[in-house]
């Protein structure tokens, strides 16, 4: 299907996707901040955590700059999609590893571990959004490689 699209159309698609996910990161980042300070905010996926909030907001800012710079600077725009998705995938991997490490640690210290904790960990915002970015990443990479590099 994508073969029929023009280069600029494909690039536009990835910048729109980045914009969509960028907004999602931003919202979750703000939620994490709200959850930390006052009340509840999508509590299932954003435990109050300043570090996580800053991480989500940073990734969100990079991703969001893709659609906003698309008309002015196509290179910057596609770089934002690329770097943004790399960052979000790394964040997801780190979170998943952390869940594994916590689980292992509970076993070692022979404490009980709840399946609930694992699920909650794997569904946390930084992991959750990362799964989707992992899905779109091959498309981002391919498009950038074909249309921007050289």
């Amino acid at each position: 299907m994508s073969g029929k699209l023009h280069a600029s159309e494909r690039l536009e698609i990835i910048s729109v996707i980045s914009g969509f996910f960028g907004s999602a990161y931003m919202i979750l980042g703000l939620c994490a901040l709200v959850a930390r300070t006052s009340g509840e905010c999508l509590t299932r996926i954003t435990p109050g955590n300043i570090g996580m909030s800053i991480l989500l907001l940073s990734i969100g800012a990079v991703l969001l700059s893709s659609p906003t710079t698309f008309r002015k600077n196509i290179i910057l725009s596609s770089a934002a999609s690329l770097v943004g998705s790399l960052l979000s995938i790394t964040a997801m991997v780190v979170q998943v590893l952390d869940v594994g490490a916590t689980w292992l640690d509970d076993i070692i210290r022979s404490q009980s571990f709840g399946r609930g904790d694992i699920v909650a960990g794997l569904l946390r915002g930084d992991a959750f959004l990362g799964y989707f970015m992992l899905l779109v990443f091959p498309f981002v990479l391919k498009t950038v490689k074909e249309h921007i590099i050289r």
Binding site: G51, I54, L55, L57, S58, I59, A61, V62, S65, A80, V83, L87, T90, A91, V94
Partner: peptide, 14 residues
């Protein structure tokens, strides 16, 4: 100028 700083924060935090 800005996005570089955001990226650096994310990288170092991770």
């Amino acid at each position: 100028r800005f996005l570089g700083i955001f990226s650096a924060i994310a990288v170092l935090y991770m």
